[in-house]
Design a protein around this nucleic acid. Structure first.
Lengths: 207, 207
DNA sequence: TATGTTGCCATACAAATGTATGGTATTTTG
DNA sequence: CAAAATACCATACATTTGTATGGCAACATA
């Protein structure tokens, strides 16, 4: 049905997806031209026309930023998963993505939030299961009782956060693991972000 | 810190939030003017200036649709929950929203997806719990094995979908409930949508 | 009373934006 | 080979869009 895209067209489409899904707002022709180094909007214009002709996008004529995606799987956008975490046995967060998860469009991430895949069932008492994706927002101040991702001695832990006078307590959902108490001044401790939610993709059972 | 907004300014801000978070793209001045029935963009212009002055938005000058939200709780957007469902005991989907859930920005919904709150633990074998929000997408074709929301005799059920030759089988996660078999021609049956994912907000324990 | 805020309109203008048209060169395809 | 598609550029033009300025009315406030 749909014709093949050329390499450049594919690149532009990727850019469109990235902008629309990632940044939230479709780019202008000038944006695209600028990104790809074109000195001219008309070039972009024709590429878009070609892409539209092949059925991958739809243009809202005369409207600024009026580019819509018509991808069949437009509800799913690949997002990098930065690592795996478990409440009990801290795992290192890898600098690069270890995997990619297809997130539905609902999962438009706040700018610099990131995803971690939960491994093991040590969070099951918080109803989070192996394979679930936790959404971590690094831009929020942790409040008592919230579940946070923290780095302690170069390892990541996911625990419930409680701020005391001079120390911070990290409590595991699972009673098997004892609370961790950290002095506020301890340098090798840092709250990476707050778990704002969990997402679980349906369809494939990959537990 | 932030000054109070007037009624009209509040309305405009609500519209901005609705568009940006809901539709995904900030409106133009003309859009806003049109929505509120203003014959003039300058009116909107001044309202935006007032709202910006009070610190609720930030404008990217000279850029089309360059309105940013600066809300403290900008990561949370109210979304209507259309009803409640349980796998075992079908509940009616109410025409109006029964509740509103604060969804984080990650939960930018695909255009006409809707939310249902899960009640009861009859889906617990699918790791879905009471209080979880299921995201239902009405625009996808159901495939075998997917969890769907279906209307059967005016009641909603959430079950796993299997298409047979002449009939459709709806299988409950919970072995207590027997599979439902529906003839394909049965008029009072319709698949409302597919559960594309579940979302659970952290922070408040409201189970 | 004077002053300021709010709410709306009209007009004007510059920049941004989308679009149309034509040109050139390369590659692909029948 | 000829025709079509691709890839890029330049120029021109009409709208869209954001912005600035001024005017008018209602209202609260000092």
């Amino acid at each position: 049905m749909k014709k093949e895209l050329t390499k450049i067209q594919k690149n532009i489409l990727d850019f469109l997806i990235d902008q629309i899904k990632g940044k939230g707002i479709p780019p202008t022709l000038a944006d695209i031209a600028n990104y790809f180094g074109y000195s001219n909007r008309a070039t972009v214009q024709q590429h878009l026309k070609a892409i539209e002709k092949k059925g991958y996008i739809k243009k809202n004529p005369k409207l600024s930023r009026g580019i819509e995606l018509t991808l069949e799987d437009k509800f799913f956008v690949p997002k990098p998963v930065l690592g795996e975490v478990a409440a009990g046995n801290p795992l290192t967060i890898y600098p690069d993505a270890i995997d990619t998860v297809k997130l539905p469009t609902i999962a438009k991430m706040p700018q610099d939030s990131f995803l971690l895949r939960v491994k093991g069932d040590s969070l099951k008492d918080a109803y989070i299961f192996s394979g679930d994706i936790v959404i971590v927002n690094p831009n929020l101040e942790p409040k008592n009782g919230q579940i946070v991702v923290a780095v302690l001695d170069d390892a990541a832990v996911v625990k419930r956060f409680y701020k005391k006078k001079n120390e911070i307590e990290l409590i595991s959902e699972n009673p098997e693991y004892k609370p961790i108490v950290i002095d506020k001044k301890y340098a090798l401790f840092q709250v990476v972000g707050i778990v704002v939610g969990i997402y679980r993709s349906m369809g494939k059972k990959e537990v």
